[in-house]
């Protein structure tokens, strides 16, 4: 049994809407899989099915060897879940929250208390341990919630958008914590809308859209899959944007992306250096003043855009990119 999580043709429908459309994947023991996709792609539904919160309409899945439908109780002893919104009790203190979770894992009163103390220390919450969670910052709440998932030291962890809504500093701190966990050998299924998060934490990334897996691989493999390098060009004058776009379109291996706000154009090309040289020559002849031009490897953002056809959130909300 080398796969901690297996899913075969999972289907979940909500009336007319198909949230999961035959999703299949496996997560080898001790590895991290990130489910990447826009809102409504089926990421949370997948987590809810795998953590027994939701019964699938079709397909089957196992976690730690236990069937999500037939063996739900034993499965729950082997998992830890940290949800999209921090599922902690605001009126209880951090210590009380963790102790309660320990008791519900049936660790017994004494071990639950000791474990709560241990985790609070590890998550740097000792000072706040005896204050109601109500007064915690967003980052502290997430830490308590994450600690809650670790109370029973379960072999398989599910983190559903663990850093959504956190400021960059709290996010970086939580990433460090998650990285440590993973280094200790836990299997982790993570959902995220953030490229950097998947890139940073996951061994494998699965891009999900409309309840289907549309790509899977390491960050590098996914980048290779969308091919070649990108020319990224910035002009000085909005009036010249269209001329530049037409020049670039002649070399394009895919869609040309224009961001009018930042006077920026991005295009995938096959022969990077040669294309760049020719584009710059063409633009110089046309009298277009180029402020900045460069060649870069595709980012996960490009992967995402190419595969799903929509812009990932979490990069720059101001950049409303137009795909033409």
């Amino acid at each position: 049994m080398s796969d901690a999580i297996t899913a075969e043709g999972l289907v979940k429908r909500y009336g007319e809407v198909t949230a999961l459309d035959g999703l299949s994947f496996t997560v080898p023991r001790g590895t991290v899989l990130a489910l990447l996709g826009p809102n409504g792609a089926g990421k949370t539904t997948t987590v809810r099915v795998l953590t027994t919160l939701l019964r699938p309409d079709g397909g089957r899945a196992t976690v730690a060897g236990y069937d999500v439908v037939g063996d739900a109780r034993r499965l729950r002893s082997s998992i830890g879940l940290s949800g999209q919104y921090a599922a902690v009790d605001e009126h209880l203190t951090g210590a009380e929250n963790l102790e309660m979770i320990g008791r519900l894992y049936h660790l017994g009163a004494k071990r639950s208390k000791a474990r709560a103390r241990e985790l609070l220390e590890r998550f740097d919450l000792t000072d706040a341990a005896n204050r109601p969670v109500k007064g915690y910052s967003g980052g502290m709440r997430r830490r308590v919630d994450l600690a809650g998932a670790l109370v029973a030291d379960p072999p398989v962890l599910f983190l559903d958008e663990p850093t959504t809504g956190l400021d960059p500093r709290a996010r970086a701190a939580l990433w460090d914590t998650i990285s440590e966990l993973v280094a200790a050998g836990s299997t982790l299924l993570l959902t995220t809308q953030y490229m950097e998060e998947a890139d940073h934490l996951a061994d494998q990334i699965m891009v999900v859209d409309h309840g289907r897996a549309i790509a899977r691989g390491t960050a590098d493999e996914l980048k290779d899959q969308v091919g070649g390098s990108r020319i990224e060009l910035t002009v000085t004058d909005a009036a010249e944007l269209e001329t530049a776009r037409q020049a670039l379109a002649r070399f394009a291996a895919g869609a040309v992306r224009t961001v009018p706000e930042s006077l920026q154009i991005t295009v995938a090309v096959t022969d990077g250096p040669e294309s760049l040289r020719q584009v710059l020559g063409l633009l110089a002849d046309a009298g277009v003043r180029v402020r900045d031009a460069g060649l870069r490897r595709p980012t996960l953002d490009d992967v995402y855009l190419t595969l799903t056809g929509h812009q990932a959130s979490g990069t720059d909300p101001q950049a409303r990119e137009a795909t033409r």
Binding site: G83, Y85, A87, I101, L104, G148
Partner: peptide
Amino acid sequence: QKGIFDRFRSLPMAPSG
């Protein structure tokens, strides 16, 4: 309205609890 019941249901506790 909050996520606390999800937490409870992901735990190996008795649902009737």
